[in-house]
Each structure stands twice: as C-alpha cells, then as structure tokens.
Amino acid sequence: MVQASREQARRYQAFVRQYHPPRPVLRNCVLAFLVGGTICAIGQGLLNLFMVQGLPLKEATGPALAVLVAMGALLTGLGVYDDIGRIGGMGAALPISGFANAITAPALEFKREGYVFGIGQRLFQIAGPVVVYGMVAAVAMATIRIVLGLTGTGGAP
C-alpha cells in the first residue's frame, strides 16, 4: 500500500483545496436566518396562543415546544423536513423541531429492523449525544455554581 507521509498528506490537502468549490456561506446564512427565524416566530405564536388561554409564560413554554416537536416529527414522516433542512441548513436543525427531526429520521428509516433494534434503538442515534452532552454540561455548570456557593437560577434577579 502507498501511504502518504504527514508532509505529503499536508501538501496534497493544500493541493486539492483549490479544486473545491467554495461553500455558499452568505446564501446559507440568509436562508438559515429566514428558516430559523420563521420557526421561532411560529413558536412565539404558539406561546402567545397558550398564554391567551390563561397559562403563565412558564407553563405555556412546554406545550408550545411540544407542538413544534409534533410538527417537526410529522413533517419528517411526510418526507418534507429533510427538504427544509437542505434549504435552511442549521436554520432547520437548530430549533427544537430539528431535534424532533433528529429523533424521528433514524427511527423512521430503521423501522424495517424492527420495533426494538430499529425504532427503539435508533430514536437516539443523533439526538442521544445532544441530550447526553446537554445534561452533562448543565450538571457540570450547576455543580460549579453550588461549589462556589452561587445558588439561585442565575437568571435575572
């Protein structure tokens, strides 16, 4: 086998880079802004809707997010959310509807491997790390604050 040395690999990497078309960063950012912004505005609409029903903001958050999650999951099932993601990039992936997509997409695709090893196991193929590291980071931050004697939620006083 012919394996490049580190120096040869570095040179080859620099050489091929000139052939790579640049990523359309500006266009991607504009689309991410529009798609992500729209999803957040829909979330705000749901939030307002539940608050009009008499729920305080804190109580309204959960149901509003759950509706976005349901929409994300449903659009994934209909085969639409991947197209939104192709256009909107992180604008589709970062909102919680994108988290729902990350849960639904692998579960749906591995359905044919059965309900346990297909859907059950694959639900967390992509979303698992998100939950794990969110939890680890939050616990770490909380522990640091407790150790430092800074209790309270750290929000606005």
Binding site: H20, P21, P22, R23, N28, T76, G79, Y81, D82, I84, G85, R86, G88, G89, A92, A93, G98, N101, A102, T104, A105, P106, L108, E109, F110, Q125, I126
Partner: peptide, 21 residues
C-alpha cells in the same frame, strides 16, 4: 442511494446540508 447513505453517513430524512464536495 438510500441503503448506502444510511450505512455510511446519515439517515436520508435527517435535515442536513451536504457540502459541495
């Protein structure tokens, strides 16, 4: 396409952008 993508990369229904390469 669909068998290869889910084996080698990501599920096809996952909302991700593919790089130009």
């Amino acid at each position: 396409h669909d068998t290869a993508e889910r084996q080698y990369r990501l599920p096809t229904e996952f909302a991700s952008q593919r790089p130009p390469t």
